[in-house]
Design a protein around this nucleic acid. Sequence first.
DNA 1: CATGTATCGTCAAGTCACTTTACCAAACGG
DNA 2: CCGTTTGGTAAAGTGACTTGACGATACATG
Lengths: 158, 158
Amino acid sequence: MAKRNESSVFTTSGDDETPFGPPLIGALLRIPWEAVQQHMLERLHESDFGDFDVAYLTVFQYPGPQGARPSELAARLRISKQALNYLLGELERLGYLERRADPDDLRSKRIALTPRGIAAVGVIREAVGEVETAWAQRLGAGRFDELRNLLLELTGLT
Amino acid sequence: MAKRNESSVFTTSGDDETPFGPPLIGALLRIPWEAVQQHMLERLHESDFGDFDVAYLTVFQYPGPQGARPSELAARLRISKQALNYLLGELERLGYLERRADPDDLRSKRIALTPRGIAAVGVIREAVGEVETAWAQRLGAGRFDELRNLLLELTGLT
DNA sequence: CATGTATCGTCAAGTCACTTTACCAAACGG
DNA sequence: CCGTTTGGTAAAGTGACTTGACGATACATG
């Protein structure tokens, strides 16, 4: 194995500082996503949410925790329910959400965002909106819509 | 605390199950990126790289660690050089790379991938290629190229 | 009804990828 | 030369995770 050292696919440049080719779709998705995430955090910290940690973004991932049961949410996020429970404890302590009793199942809880949590979600969505505006300016509105539609089709979120 | 039991702020839509709107660009980027990442890991584990941990993907992020100095790479990845050094230790222990002396600077090291490390990179790139093929089929080759070009322009990687 | 089993949240303990702090050695700029 | 900067690393602590175990509730089956 590992005979892949020669320029079969790496014909982009003659520089052996970059033995790898052009950026693949992985990097092309990761980099702008990280930009979005960072902007969300910046805006949160500028607002009244200086205590909002990066880790909490997991919990607020689309479509958010509102009304969900902890077990269900943990499965959706693909983390253990204990891990989620830890994060929920932090978020409850900071006043972003509450764990309320589920009226239909005495074993279960339901996650309910507090006004503070809802406000944080608002800031997050605003921040993403700002990024979208900036990118729409860079690409042109039509091409940005195109990008969004392509991603929408790709993710199957329709 | 805060017995805010009623729908004070849930005025965005009539349905309080989904107080949030459609998926924003954040989710649209995150979801396919996670798919790529997961596929990379699956392929690595199917190959001879069962010991390749998710965390190591950070180090192999485009354009990869080959020839880099630890400090430089840590800055690029935006983690502390100690954190990177820990990962490099693991990767060196597993035979993916070596830290060699820098001929130009006695303080410094240079990261050099071993054949095993180069092979792993090959598997990673193959895996991403498979995802690209699948997506090109779903969207159509032309529209996938369009997607790639839009992302390329967005990331500024040209 | 009774009873075994699956599911819910949570406690406990351990893991490990990070952090900050602190050093020393080599490079560099007067 | 000598003060400052830079590169790698050791040590200790942190926290977001993991697996394991547990009591309580729900549910399906006899």
